[in-house]
Simulated assay, not measured.
Amino acid sequence: MKHTNLQKEQQLALALAREASAAILPLYYSGVDVEDKEDGSPVTIADKRSNQIILDGIQKAFPNDGIVSEELDTLSGKRFWYVDPIDGTKGFIGHSDQFAIHIALAKKGDTPMLGLVYKPTTGEYYITARGEGAYRVNPDGSKTQLQVAGDREGLRIVTNMTFTLKQRTLVDILQADKLYMGGGLGLRAMRVAEGLADIYIKDSDNGGTWDTAAPQAIIEEAGGIVMRLDGSPVIYSGQRGPSERMVFSKNRDLGLYVADIVQKYVK
């Protein structure tokens, strides 16, 4: 795999995630007012504050890069940063720790080459740059290289905490022997990157590229694959979304098998 020289970009992403975390944690503990966006999803002053910190930092360091963010009109460039200032806003509002900050980077027309999923409540994070390995870094600074699961009997699936009827149908059809339930998309997907689960199915077209870019970079560097339900790769060209249904899988064969079932039975 081709190595990239993204040390400066990685350091920037991590510094901005830490700065944004410090700004939003007091709001997490005190509580915030909630507004509804046009699509019905919630947004808070914490989302906006985190977004502004990350936006300002990227523009200062890399003024020619584009930015795609949930809380911002797209800024154009040859490279695009994909920013979700709080992935899992409902968890943030509900004082759950199941939310994270996402920052990713991709050249136009490519898969993400850098990804960070940062957990503000603990300081734990998942990070990668293409060709450099993917890692989970603990609050004490110790780190573990991520590797998706190998061959094994049974199937371990990740779903969200609401566990909808169509997700239950899918679990029953696949006869999953273990089910992980998580909060934000990024933290769900990290179960696959860590080898704790075999596949995460994003079974709706909700959200945007800011949700999926960072987790995709990490899973693919850990040896897994992210694909649309037709088996094609998920490519980033500065688009916002809406995001598509896709699978985050430990390997292509499992991804294709599950994607086929989703298309046939889960509408």
Rank of each mutant, 00 (worst) to 15 (best):
R240E: 04
K264V: 03
F248N: 09
G186L: 01
Y257F: 11
S41W: 08
A222N: 04
Y118D: 05
N251C: 09
G94P: 00
E153I: 05
L114Y: 07
E9Y: 10
E9A: 14
V117P: 05
I225G: 05
V262N: 03
G184R: 05
N251G: 08
L174K: 09
G115Q: 07
K267W: 07
P112C: 05
E38N: 07
V148P: 06
F163R: 07
A22P: 00
E220S: 08
R188S: 13
I53W: 03
S21Q: 10
G223Q: 01
Q59A: 09
I261H: 01
K60T: 11
S204I: 14
A193K: 02
R79A: 13
R252G: 05
D172A: 09
R245Y: 10
V117W: 07
G184K: 06
E19C: 06
D73V: 07
P112A: 06
A129E: 15
F80E: 00
G77F: 05
P85N: 05
I101W: 04
K8W: 07
V226W: 01
L27M: 15
F99V: 01
K48R: 15
R79N: 15
P215K: 05
S237R: 12
G94S: 15
F163V: 11
L25R: 09
G109L: 08
V266A: 03
V234C: 12
Q7P: 00
T74V: 07
G133T: 11
G123H: 14
G255V: 00
G133M: 11
K143Y: 03
R49F: 05
I261F: 01
D39Y: 11
R18E: 11
G238F: 02
A61V: 10
L146C: 06
T128E: 03
